[in-house]
Design a protein around this nucleic acid. Structure first.
Lengths: 235, 235
DNA sequence: CGTCGCGTTGACGTTGATCAATAGGCGTGG
DNA sequence: CCACGCCTATTGATCAACGTCAACGCGACG
């Protein structure tokens, strides 16, 4: 994969915060409340598979996903890849105390982000307790997610991992009238997120389909047909 | 394992901060600089295998390890355990935005801690930018560690995991004149940290010993004899 | 209509888990 | 001091889950 620098023509930048605020209507979680951070947010768009930043890039910006899905990943020297997280709308990423980013961020689907200049965030953290609180909460939120994922990778079977993954996405995805929701990422992305191979992921999809636990419509649309039973599997 | 409430006679509590400050001489990392947090720190001691808090306990206190080693762990319903982290001296744990702790903390060896009342920390975060900064850095530090561990569990072989673990401990441990350092935790702890079984951990120890990569003196003292070559294994 | 990328499926191999036996360290009590 | 028991660690034999390698299907796109 060759590294291309992402440049964005000015026209893709609506007025500060405008789009971000528009998108805030559908937001639920505590860290997602309208906050003064949005005053300094700049909206950006990235296309499917476009890199948002690379390992080693200066961590000069923090981000929030407004629409679409972002993957954060790390790669070993020999090419093995681990997806650290999929970042969903209204969630933040790229917050760091390091000078440089330690993982890569890419758009899984076409994505709309809000970008915050780190320098300005740092200033606000000092001047506004509410922003300090927000940044702490954002980071704690990530921490909690990673802890869950750590248990998943360390102690769960392939089937449990995929089921947990599907239930997690079902929770936040919009389900259509027939119960289907979108799974925008590839089988490779799923495998690299769950610490498996694409073949194993594919086989377990087939097994779940055979057992009538799920239905598939193409490879990117799923419907859970026995969410209760599936939930039992993972606790 | 039965749950015992930890009570501490008053005599085990030296004057506020005294011991904490004494122990700060040997500290290196950025988040470890002497900070105003220590003003509200209370020193506590826990014995080997004693619980510091359980899953579901109110997260009313945050902690810093002064001496000894702490393990943070989570357990699945069927008893599978994942150790989230080993917390070394001068590192913090238990920081959370949740009401309740989501994992358990126990003393691996006899441990000296500093405990900070969450309410007072929250107040200081609002009133002192430097404390807000510190708390953000502490959380980011944990985040960074978990990201590394996620790649380890998702994409590394058993041998790579154990080697990474040994190199990590070698870095922070005190090495004696013959090159040995202490590994205070049991094989079970190591296995549950690395997502393996005790048998696999034991076999890889034996393999490393056979290949003259390490020497063992008992099961809790190790010396790395080819740290360079071992480091190549994990990148 | 051919090619390409992605996903699925099958056959087989390997890593690490499981089950089982033994060894070693350590505290307790005689 | 030794004997015993207990707990932890090691080692061996076997097994199963998941990975690897390979073939094929299928839809998108030129």
């Amino acid at each position: 994969m060759t590294r291309t620098i992402s440049t964005f023509p000015a026209k893709t930048h609506p007025p500060l915060g405008a789009l971000a605020n528009a998108a805030l209507g559908s937001i639920r979680r505590s860290v997602d409340t309208q906050s003064s951070l949005d005053e300094i947010g700049v909206v950006m768009r990235f296309e499917r598979d476009q890199a948002i930043f690379y390992v080693g890039d200066d961590a000069d910006y923090y981000y929030k996903v407004v629409d679409g899905l972002v993957r954060l990943s790390d790669m070993l020297a020999d090419g093995r890849r681990q997806i650290i997280d999929f970042v969903k709308p209204s969630h933040y990423f790229g917050f760091s105390s390091q000078k440089e980013h330690l993982f890569q961020a890419e758009a899984v689907s076409d994505v709309t982000l809000v970008r915050y200049a780190r320098r300005r965030v740092d200033t606000m953290v000092v001047e506004r307790p509410s922003v300090a609180r927000l940044v702490v909460d954002i980071t704690n939120d990530s921490l909690r997610g990673l802890q869950r994922q750590l248990v998943l990778l360390g102690r769960r079977t392939a089937k449990e991992r995929l089921v947990a993954f599907l239930l997690d996405f079902a929770k936040s995805a919009e389900t259509d009238s027939r119960g289907f929701f979108q799974l925008p990422m590839s089988r490779r992305d799923i495998a690299d997120y769950l610490g498996l191979t694409i073949e194993t992921v594919s086989r377990i999809f087939s097994e779940l389909k055979r057992d009538r636990d799920i239905e598939l419509a193409g490879s990117h649309e799923v419907a859970l047909r026995r969410a209760e039973e599936l939930a039992l599997l993972i606790e």
